[in-house]
Amino acid sequence: MALTGLFLCTFLLVHLIGNLQLFKADGGMAFNVYAVFMTTNPLIKFTSYGLYAIIIFHAFWGLYLVSENKKARPVAYAMVDGKANSQWTSRWMGVLGTIILAFIVMHMAGFWAKYKFGEVPYVQYERNIVDGSMTYGPSAPIESKKEQFVSAETGMEYTIVKDLYTEVAVAFKEWWIVLLYVLAMAAVSFHLVHGFSSAFQTLGVHHSKYNGLIKFVGIWVFGIIVPILFAAMPVYFFIQ
């Protein structure tokens, strides 16, 4: 759980940095081009299959361990004062993880599956290569995933890609989708506040010199900054 968990933490960072391009005011060109790169680059493709396998392993091995651990106490206590000796996040990892798993399924069905197998309209960006000014509008579907060329006649650079950006922007106009995303990011936050430092403890990394740093990164980076930036994306499109 520790190794796969830490791998998933690094994935979150990469996913976050890539998706921050949603905030770029360029009609979604940077994000759409990035989406093509992420679905065509062979190294990324190879890593992504590993990622899916690790998500499935982490989730189902975790659920298996929860059920095994339940067997270790067949008769439950009548009264348990859990808050007296531990953080609630550490006791609810299985539930938080299940919420996150349900979210991942919904999230992938909404965007990943639609992008790969569904009907996503194309967009054409026209950028003036002299002054950098840009216009964009709908385009007819193309054979490949991306076409990019420069026309000497018009002095324009043309980019035609699938418009995932608009799919995202439209989805995040629905209040209930935004709410689900924000709640799921809260679950990610609570899961990682315990999970990140717990992974180091499981791997035997416990040292007075580094415990503070591990705890700090677990709480501030993975518990606060990463989930807030992710949650800011749906909120940004909703209030726009």
Partner: peptide, 24 residues
Amino acid sequence: GACTNTGACSAECPKEISLSNIAR
């Protein structure tokens, strides 16, 4: 059962055995 690092053991231990033992 398996350890999920909740820390309840050390918090309730009458001899205050540290979680650093589990890492070791």
